[in-house]
Nucleic acid binder design. Sequence first.
DNA 1: CCCGTTTTATGAAACGATTCATCCCTCACT
DNA 2: AGTGAGGGATGAATCGTTTCATAAAACGGG
Lengths: 336, 336
Amino acid sequence: MAAISVRDVAARAGVSVGTVSNVLNRPDKVAPATVERVQEAISELGFVRNDAARQLRAGRSRSIGLVVLDVANPFFTDVARGAEARAAEDGLTVLLGNSDENLDREGAYLDLFEEQRVHGVLISPLGDVGDRLTRLRARGTPTVLVDRKTADHSFSSVAVDDVAGGHLAVEHLAAIGRTRIAFVGGPQSIRQVADRLEGARQAVREHPGVSLEVIDTEALSVLQGRFAGEQLRARDPADRPDAVFAANDLLAIGVLQALSMLGDVRVPADVALIGYDDIAFAAAAIVPLSSIRQPSTLIGHTAVDLLLREAAGGDDFEHEQIEFQPELIVRESTGG
Amino acid sequence: MAAISVRDVAARAGVSVGTVSNVLNRPDKVAPATVERVQEAISELGFVRNDAARQLRAGRSRSIGLVVLDVANPFFTDVARGAEARAAEDGLTVLLGNSDENLDREGAYLDLFEEQRVHGVLISPLGDVGDRLTRLRARGTPTVLVDRKTADHSFSSVAVDDVAGGHLAVEHLAAIGRTRIAFVGGPQSIRQVADRLEGARQAVREHPGVSLEVIDTEALSVLQGRFAGEQLRARDPADRPDAVFAANDLLAIGVLQALSMLGDVRVPADVALIGYDDIAFAAAAIVPLSSIRQPSTLIGHTAVDLLLREAAGGDDFEHEQIEFQPELIVRESTGG
DNA sequence: CCCGTTTTATGAAACGATTCATCCCTCACT
DNA sequence: AGTGAGGGATGAATCGTTTCATAAAACGGG
């Protein structure tokens, strides 16, 4: 309503606008008596700093943009929490954008963040690192890839070795004697999916007699998992795989629902099941879910670290690729 | 790097800055040929609008602040998705803040949003509607309470009748013959918790012979639920309640983990269990969870609706309280 | 061919906080 | 008393966009 500005505060306190600004930003440079008088004026008038003006002058905002594939996936909210915690240490805020595995939405958020002149962008990109990100960074917005590594070393990134994770999962399935394995996941354009499948293929190659079938899904959601599960359930038992490796836990939960709740296929007796991410709900699933654990909070934390380092370093900054190792968590769904 | 501004674009295209602005905001007011020339200059120079300057001029930002109690709770991410969808219809963005049931964090986000001059604030407040929110609104930021109603009608709000929900849950437990009921939840300062408990108490009063015990928790998380569940498991069976009503599904899942995974208490045979919110994972829990469903996405959607209406209406705006009714969902955890 | 409209373009002013060169005082020291 | 140093305070300039009053050009009807 009133739109109180520093000017009003200055008038009320009988000082100049410069002094008000100093009280706000470096109180130690102002005489104690003056500080108090200004503070008083501020609270009497109910003055609230206008962040837009601040940013305009500063040239950069005090936030970091984070674009994730799916906010409904607890893995990503965990990453976000890690990022938020680290950002808070430097007085920065995290803006969370949800691309929902949709290229247009991803682009919209990138545009938005760039217009906001964010400190930097953390992104779990949908497809390839396109022109988009390259241009974004070229124009001066530091960018760090999350949960994703690049072949070339043109971007900083924090990732987990998804190929190793996929290998771990299938290796485990083979170790418990399963031979007809199905990989449920998609779309393949998502690198995480492709890498996990690649790891699975490697493991299969190392075990003669073990076969791998790929069941494609449109997204990494519970619902899509349910569709895949129903398809499996409808098959003739002889024709059914004896193990399923789902590209993430949401899918795995969907498969589980279709198989053991809606159907009569027993997990793990008939079909062993393993997911990926080890979200909190995996342990509480109808059949506690084996999974591949990723250090989600740490990923977010580290990504912000890297971003700040990149922002501080000059143009000749050496991009850094950090890769964590995934961990196999065995529970009942694979006979644990 | 370069910091391209409208001025640069104007120079390049050989027009005035006003025209560039018009191309950006009302292209129909500019001759087609000119539009094209300006567009060209924009893409050649890689010009990106500076949102801070835009907002400064406009006086308001184009986003809405949303403060929730816990981002890790799927219920709130669903609310956020609903809000985001409705906001997008009006070209607005939703900024998600996570108070984590912490008063300081809640305050920090409110300050931040106010400094950002957001269009309005949606909040699921921690304790009472304090001075804080009253002042915020008095200073001109429309505010709508989410998942919470006020006794007086001083704020607009979108809520679900939590008393009715609590009643529904306990009524159901009584109907299936349980008599020694435990309410797991806390802190009581969270209105949702208090209301659900109140509803539970009402239902108990209507059923002679049914008793209610309250087990307090520090937060509404899976971990806190596990603590409560362990406490129950450690008890002598004769001394154990035969039903648990958890204040939300996260707690219920924690209780379930403690009872049936880590312990040997059978659900629902020994202890029936019902949660609240009906999050997606409830149906996939180790024992599919009965719950009280809330129309989460609709809540978010409606809250933004109300906010926009309040922002449009003048000072004499009539605050509106919308209340949805909860719905009982029966699954195996109560013998469904 | 003239006058009143309509279309198109102009550029200075404004938004509000921050910065920085500058000035004014005190005070200590010689 | 004079000088220099340094703490405090000042206020005009600045960031980049939008708005708006105004001007110029194009058009159409009589």
